[in-house]
Amino acid sequence: MEGKQERSRERKRRMAEAAARLLISDGPAAITHRRVAEAAGLAPGSGNYYFTSKQALYAAAVEGAEELRSREAQARAGALEARPRSLEQIARELMDVFFAPGLAADVVPLRLLPMLDAGRDPGLQQIMSAHRPRLARAVATALERMTGRGLAEADVELVMQVIAASLLHADGTAPGGGLDSAAATVARVLGLLGVRAPSGPSAS
């Protein structure tokens, strides 16, 4: 009996991890019992046994995705080297950290809009809020490692909000160049906050 329960817990864990990866790579539409079970290496029809509702499966996907995002953001921030960068390069690195494990051109429809939708659900909003401080620390760490300068917590939160807002704006106004346009906006806000780019030949 104990062995069966352990196998069940392991399969549920595998489904949760697969759901998190699918949510990040393919968006909410990918979170179906069948597709998640297949991604977890389980029988396609077994998904409902481990997560009895679509809501429960999606909550597990959000929890896992936010955990993965926070962990990867901290790792990415910690790996940054102190070298000359322009403010736009710094902004782009901060965007990459904030949307770890990777920032792609389709980040708005696949990740940002679903995050905003999740924030309207009290249960999902609680999951995301619990991970927000870890993301903030990762962004703060990234900024300090690149510039040697720290920001107050409120200003780090402002930078994260500007990253999201600038991506939303650029997605509707700069087709094909949304990431560059958003980085330029974030760089301008960094400058207004007193962040200065390290000088050097590669900071161009």
Score class of each variant (00 low, 15 high):
88 E>S: 09
27 G>Q: 07
100 A>K: 02
93 E>W: 02
68 L>G: 05
194 G>Y: 04
48 N>I: 08
202 S>C: 05
78 G>N: 05
130 A>Q: 08
32 T>S: 15
52 T>Q: 11
18 A>K: 10
181 S>K: 07
96 D>G: 07
157 E>R: 00
16 A>K: 04
67 E>R: 08
81 E>P: 01
60 A>K: 02
153 E>D: 14
64 G>C: 09
159 V>H: 02
125 Q>A: 14
113 L>R: 11
158 L>N: 02
106 D>Y: 12
184 A>T: 04
128 M>Q: 15
136 A>S: 07
146 M>L: 12
51 F>R: 02
61 A>L: 10
136 A>P: 00
7 R>A: 00
145 R>G: 14
56 A>I: 03
147 T>S: 10
71 R>M: 05
165 A>R: 03
197 A>G: 07
151 L>S: 07
34 R>W: 07
83 R>A: 15
197 A>H: 03
202 S>N: 06
178 G>P: 07
43 A>T: 08
107 V>K: 01
184 A>Q: 10
7 R>K: 14
168 L>D: 04
188 R>E: 12
54 K>I: 10
24 I>N: 03
8 S>P: 01
174 A>Q: 09
57 L>I: 11
161 Q>T: 11
93 E>V: 11
115 M>C: 03
38 E>L: 14
82 A>D: 10
157 E>V: 00
146 M>H: 04
155 D>E: 14
101 P>S: 08
86 S>D: 04
99 F>I: 02
54 K>W: 05
10 E>G: 01
131 H>N: 09
12 K>G: 13
74 Q>T: 05
25 S>A: 15
150 G>I: 00
141 T>D: 14
183 A>C: 11
135 L>W: 01
21 R>C: 07
174 A>F: 11
168 L>A: 03
13 R>W: 06
35 R>E: 15
59 A>W: 04
172 G>R: 10
180 D>F: 11
89 Q>L: 02
55 Q>N: 04
36 V>A: 11
36 V>Q: 09
120 R>S: 10
9 R>W: 01
126 Q>N: 06
135 L>N: 03
154 A>V: 06
58 Y>E: 05
195 V>A: 01
67 E>A: 14
121 D>S: 12
70 S>Q: 03
92 R>V: 03
45 G>D: 13
35 R>M: 12
10 E>P: 00
170 A>K: 04
128 M>C: 13
185 T>F: 02
147 T>I: 11
62 V>T: 04
195 V>H: 01
122 P>C: 07
165 A>Q: 08
4 K>A: 15
21 R>F: 09
101 P>H: 04
161 Q>P: 00
10 E>C: 03
157 E>S: 01
27 G>S: 10
129 S>I: 04
190 L>S: 04
43 A>K: 06
82 A>F: 15
102 G>W: 06
174 A>L: 05
2 E>F: 15
18 A>S: 14
20 A>T: 07
151 L>D: 00
21 R>K: 09
66 E>K: 05
117 D>Q: 09
142 A>F: 01
71 R>T: 12
201 P>C: 03
21 R>M: 09
31 I>W: 02
34 R>V: 15
78 G>P: 05
104 A>P: 00
194 G>M: 01
87 L>D: 02
135 L>D: 05
161 Q>E: 14
